[in-house]
């Protein structure tokens, strides 16, 4: 447990606190700017993970009809059949270069970064004597920001350490609305209408429930955290727009086969995929990742047809 704490401190916490402090020093002693720039840097550094996650989810989406067919085939059968199902499913994943936890992996990898950042915000601007004393151990001896301590937590009339609810109006209302709004926007951008009406309604609930829930939580978040979530959402929206597909959030969602990328308000791009067996026409046809997936899907189809003909030849023999 102690080693876990040490690793957490040395790999996540100290680099983050020092980065925030250096950015504060560079960005005119402004901790708000420091948080915003740091958030953007983190989001852009995670773009490869985001792309990978999206790819995995799309590939997984393409396989859903086949997995469904396999499940139908082995439904209610013996233990052997269940193990066959498992083997066949794994083979399917392997053939298509899909890892069943591939969509979850990047999400899990990003979790410590988000939590680390939340902690780092308050460790860099400690409001208590204990926190201030601990900051001495967190800042590297070469960090030029050591002479800037204590870092000021004022930003545009807000105290970044104070709760959003305790800020003066209209900031205390505006921030939760902006956090919820940007989350809704990011989700809406990436969400498509599935063919299954049940999933359609689930999507609608997710689209509204998550932003409202997070907007509500934001009231009790420290303002610095709310700023982080807000800019993380904005960055997520921009990354989604330019890297993983372009959609107009105010137009109704596109074709049924597109993945639903539900952006987690904390700044994740948690990917959710709709099952569909149709290859669709989409607004994002020119996005490289989608082209690649289509090529992969085509390759997969031709592989399937080759193996089918091989099997029928064998049968004839």
């Amino acid at each position: 447990m102690e080693i876990f704490g040490l690793l957490w401190n040395e790999i996540i916490m100290r680099p983050m606190v020092n980065s925030l402090a250096i950015l504060y020093d560079v960005l005119f002693d402004n901790f708000g700017l420091s948080i915003i720039v740091f958030t953007l840097l983190i989001r852009f550094a995670l773009i490869p993970l985001t792309i990978r996650q999206t790819k995995q989810m799309k590939a997984m989406s393409g396989l859903q009809p086949k997995i469904k067919a396999l499940q139908e085939k082995y439904k209610g059968k013996s233990k052997d059949a269940r193990s066959n199902l498992s083997r066949e499913t794994m083979r399917l994943y392997k053939e298509n270069g899909v890892s069943p936890i591939g969509c979850l992996g990047p999400f899990v990898i990003q979790m410590p970064i988000w939590f680390g950042l939340f902690r780092a915000l308050f460790k860099a601007v400690p409001p208590t004597p204990e926190g201030m004393a601990n900051l001495n151990g967190l800042l590297y001896s070469w960090n030029p920001a050591r002479s800037s301590v204590p870092l000021s937590s004022d930003f545009l009339g807000m105290d970044l350490v104070g709760l959003v609810s305790s800020q003066t109006p209209p900031i205390n209302i505006l921030l939760p609305v902006l956090v919820g709004g940007t989350m809704w926007l990011t989700q809406k951008t990436t969400m498509t209408r599935p063919t299954d009406p049940r999933q359609q309604s689930t999507n609608q609930i997710m689209l509204w429930m998550l932003p409202i829930m997070f907007g509500f939580f934001t009231f009790q978040f420290p303002t610095g955290l709310a700023i982080y979530i807000l800019f993380s959402n904005i960055a997520g929206f921009v990354i989604q727009y330019f890297v993983t597909g372009r959609q107009n959030p105010f137009k109704s969602a596109g074709s049924a086969d597109q993945p639903v990328l539900a952006a987690v308000g904390s700044g994740t791009t948690g990917a959710e995929t709709e099952t569909s067996d149709r290859e669709g026409t989409s607004d994002d046809a020119d996005a490289p990742i989608h082209r690649k997936n289509r090529r992969r899907s085509n390759r997969s189809r031709s592989r399937d047809s080759r193996s089918k003909s091989r099997r029928s030849r064998n049968r004839r023999r």
Partner: peptide, 16 residues
């Protein structure tokens, strides 16, 4: 996951 995240984030502010 989101609920966990939110609660963890709230818990993370304990050092204030």
């Amino acid at each position: 996951l989101l609920a966990l995240f939110a609660f963890a984030a709230l818990a993370c502010t304990g050092g204030l």
